[in-house]
Amino acid sequence: MALFGNLVQGALGNYSEKTPEQLQKEYGDYLFDNETITMGYQLIRDALVFTTHRIIFIDKQGATGKKTAFRSIHLDSIIDVDMETAGLGLDDSQLTVTYLANVNQRSNNEVHQTHLFEFPKKTDILPVYRYLGSISIANRERINK
């Protein structure tokens, strides 16, 4: 029954939580030097991995999933995070991360982008929200010095 639930959540675009050890086995070879996995989520074949340096979106493409795209949001570019918890119906929990898309992070030359993450109702997103919120506060202080 759990597999069916994961498939339904995956079909709806929701992630199910995985341990850092599980994700390390599958994606450890793709990490940068001195980068470690802190938490992550699986979406049927795709994954969302949080590391000490970035958030990685892993998109397995095609029928076999051999072709894989890795896209990142670097933690030092995150400047805001919003949270919406699940309601009583079929609502899911959501986190929206706002980050600077330009490498040269100067307050007079910002290029903002956002990314929406949807999580199943049963997932406790508060730790992720607090983690990303703390990062955004530190980044704002660093950028605005």
Rank of each mutant, 00 (worst) to 15 (best):
T51M: 00
L132T: 00
D59W: 10
Q22R: 11
Y30W: 12
T114C: 04
F117E: 01
D76A: 10
A63V: 09
K66Y: 13
T38W: 08
T96I: 13
S72F: 06
V128F: 06
A47W: 04
A86G: 15
A101Y: 03
E17H: 07
I37H: 11
T123R: 07
E35R: 12
F70D: 08
I78Y: 13
E26I: 03
D91P: 02
A69H: 10
N109Y: 03
Y27I: 05
D124T: 07
V49R: 00
A69F: 10
K66V: 14
N104I: 12
N139L: 01
Y41A: 04
R140E: 01
T68S: 05
F119I: 01
L23E: 03
Q94W: 10
R71A: 13
S93D: 05
D91R: 06
S136I: 01
M39G: 09
V97M: 04
G133D: 08
A86Y: 04
D76Q: 14
I44S: 10
K67R: 14
F117N: 00
E21I: 08
R140N: 02
R45E: 13
T51I: 02
I56F: 05
Y129C: 04
D92R: 04
F70S: 03
N102L: 04
L43T: 02
L88G: 12
H53V: 02
T19Q: 11
A47S: 13
I56E: 08
H112A: 07
L100H: 07
A47Q: 02
E84L: 12
L116E: 01
Q105L: 08
